[in-house]
Amino acid sequence: MSFQISIGGFIAVYIFMVTAFAGWVIIGRVPAILHTPLMSGSNFVHGIVVVGGIFTLLNASTPLEQAIGFVAVLLGAGNVAGGFAVTQRMLAMFQTSGHPTKHPKHAKRAALAAVKSISPKKA
């Protein structure tokens, strides 16, 4: 038994077609307020290219292939890590009036504002 994956031309087109439709539907649900995190999030998703980079580098057999493969993994890893870091940071900032201060930075700022409002600065 072999688990070698083999995707012929037509199957590939089918996969692309179905995924494109799915992507269109999934992304269409995202509200405009989240479009920046969505963009950096989808940016993170295509960072999976790093997996292809690792595969290519492990199979490299000449110095040139090793050098380019190294660059591929380097850039792919940057894409993944950077994309995740900024997306996660941005999403942590969104909050409702209901539960105001989950974010530590905001909790601090809210506390400062509260202190200020009690003792107004004399200008």
Partner: peptide
């Protein structure tokens, strides 16, 4: 590379980028 995960993730982002 015959890697369906890359195909799916890539095309998903392609559709997302097009829509945006």
């Amino acid at each position: 590379l015959q890697n369906p995960a890359l195909m799916i993730a890539g095309m998903l982002v392609g559709a997302a980028g097009l829509l945006l």
